[in-house]
Design a protein around this nucleic acid. Structure first.
Lengths: 235, 235
DNA sequence: CAAGATTAAACTGTCGACAATCGACGATTA
DNA sequence: TAATCGTCGATTGTCGACAGTTTAATCTTG
């Protein structure tokens, strides 16, 4: 009599994981603008507010530090990262490098299922374009790009994208408006999908390079227009 | 009477930073093979051994987790990461992607000072080739590649390289021997430097792609030869 | 009144403790 | 005999506390 386990999939009972939750809450607070760039993140304050002790907060903060959302000054605490123009440039430069590669890999792994997934995401982007929620719009945009990294099939590649995206999310609060018509953005992704199906590495690379480069130029322009408190974390 | 701090000196004003020290110690232990892949890292044990409390150890472990050296199973603790063949592939694939990009950027920032720095490093590699210390040899190799990322001038690019390198260091213990003659490896880097000075993006990319690809193929072969305990962390 | 010195408050880094949970081992039962 | 259940030790997750340092506020003094 074998019959080892009731084969049915039980709903992955979730995270009692405190630090994970705290990390998510802090991340949200940063994206929402409740924690502004340069602001001090007081461990005891967060802990009290959440009704927990400082230990999980510290660990969560360390996570966000590694992720680039916070910076830590020894003996002084954690602060919300201030993205300078040069940071934006670095991030977009890396994005291009990484996503071009992801695109080429993804095109090799392209299956009907994958194609449909991407297609559906473009539909979602069009739907989102109707309502006026630019944060949501950006999020759906990221989701499409993330799918490409998923299809590429490299966990590290995907994590790298997630890290870059989470840094870029910090700019959502700063930039009040979208830099282009939502529908036009969605259309751009259709073209991108076509190229991916085509499967020509050079063309894919060129296309993604241009695609992200365009966003880079627009965001860069907006960021440079901001008062952009020079820097602030220096001594 | 002013005179607050004698401004001179600054011996690497480092670390009263416990978690940084712990992280380095653990990293070393993993590279040296004192902590074998799959081994459990008991917080209390490490803490007792170092004469400190568990808190800094935990935070250090979380750091190494984010860096990919440890994996954490909730409620079960931290374990030394087991690199599968697929992990090696992912890392080298990313290395190629990242370092090709770094090479192109670096070639644009190439100055006489930078050129000399790289040249000197190649000399060091030749010197190291004389003595028989393959760990040291690999380390000097990494140093050269790291310099390229430094010259590229992107902090994130550099950190990315450091993360990948630190994961790859885990394989040093596994692979007992070098996969090529040390002097030949050094020579390969001379050719690489030449191409960098030349400054042709396509050629740089092709060259670095081949250079790292060669290492990939060799390391991959060696790893696949190992008994390579299938996996082990799964349930 | 301003600049520096001094004191007070707040915060971080680290520690030791305790309950909850996990894995192993042995008892139990068909 | 083989598989399941219950118990026990070991380990993690979280907490509250304390000392040393940083920041803010207050006071001194030219």
């Amino acid at each position: 009599m074998r019959l080892i386990t009731p084969p049915v999939g039980l709903t992955a009972l979730a995270d009692t994981d405190l630090v994970g939750q705290v990390a998510r809450i802090l991340t949200q607070a940063i994206i929402n603008g409740q924690l502004l760039p340069g602001a001090k993140v007081v461990e005891a304050g967060i802990a009290r507010e959440l009704g927990i002790s400082r230990a999980p907060v510290r660990e969560a903060a360390r996570l966000l530090e590694q992720q680039g959302l916070l910076v830590s000054h020894p003996r002084r605490g954690f602060f919300v990262r201030k993205l300078e123009a040069t940071d934006i440039d670095e991030i977009y430069d890396l994005r291009i490098c990484v996503e071009c590669h992801a695109g080429v890999l993804a095109s090799k792994n392209m299956t009907p299922a994958n194609r449909d997934m991407l297609r559906r995401q473009i539909d979602v982007m069009h739907e989102t374009a109707a309502i006026d929620d630019h944060a949501r719009q950006i999020e759906e945009d990221y989701k499409f790009h993330r799918m490409i990294c998923e299809i590429a099939g490299s966990k590290r590649l995907l994590r790298l994208f997630d890290d870059l995206a989470s840094e870029l999310r910090m700019t959502i609060g700063l930039i009040g408006r979208l830099y282009d018509d939502p529908h036009r953005i969605a259309q751009t992704h259709e073209a991108l999908l076509e190229v991916l199906e085509q499967g020509h590495p050079d063309i894919i690379t060129a296309r993604i390079d241009y695609h992200i480069g365009a966003a880079w130029r627009e965001v860069g322009k907006l960021v440079r227009e901001l008062p952009s408190s020079t820097n602030g974390v220096a001594t």
